[in-house]
Amino acid sequence: MSDDTPLTIADRQFSSRVFLGTSAYPNLQVMLDCVEESGTELVTLSIRRLDLEGYAESPVDLLEDYDFLPNTAGCETARDAILTAQLARESLETNWVKLEIIGDRETLYPDVEQLLSATDELVKDGFTVLPYCNDDPVICKRLADLGAAAVMPMGSLIGSGMGVANPANIELICRQAEVPVVIDAGLGTASDVVQSFELGCDAVLLNTAVARARNPVAMARAVRHAAEAGRAAHLAGRIPKRPHAEASSPQMGLVGS
């Protein structure tokens, strides 16, 4: 889209507004094809214990052309998330982190208290923090005030494919946010991506929607087009909704009148 400005987060510019997770694809090649087809420039990774019994292939070496966004997925305390972020910085030579602190294993809902304190600490330690958070405008504002480089409110529960559960909240967050809004989690298909951009999101982060699609590579392509369409529609400005009809054809000179 030539008339759009690049997305800027912290010190980096992105021409693609799609961020893509690298997990749960049918195989490594499909993952690589999806990353390419989505047009993304930023991929998420996790940090895990090395298997001491045998070397397993890591996807990371095949993703050197992309920027890395390591996550703290699975962490339940600020302390564990901070250590994971520090290990990620050492391992991947990036100070970017998708800060994810889970308060409940069943819903994978963020633990806001831990999230706020970890964001504060990591920002002070020089990290570029992108916190995964509730679709709560107040929490998003607090995170931005603490120095988060972007906020990543949930569309709906992680991996649920339920789309944007609370569009009014997401729109409010986008309108108020002083940092970029990257909607994360729950998006299920291209229309969810379009809607996210129409509501004002600056970027989308998907994983399961692509990885578990019947045809992941085709879905990655659909997501790329959806991001472009949704962003273009947002910039174009939709008409207001009204509860009555308004003829689009001229009312003068009707045949037979």
Binding site: G21, S46, I47, R48, A88, G159
Partner: peptide, 10 residues
Amino acid sequence: IEIVRPLAGG
């Protein structure tokens, strides 16, 4: 001691 490395992630 934790020895870690990056893996796929969402």
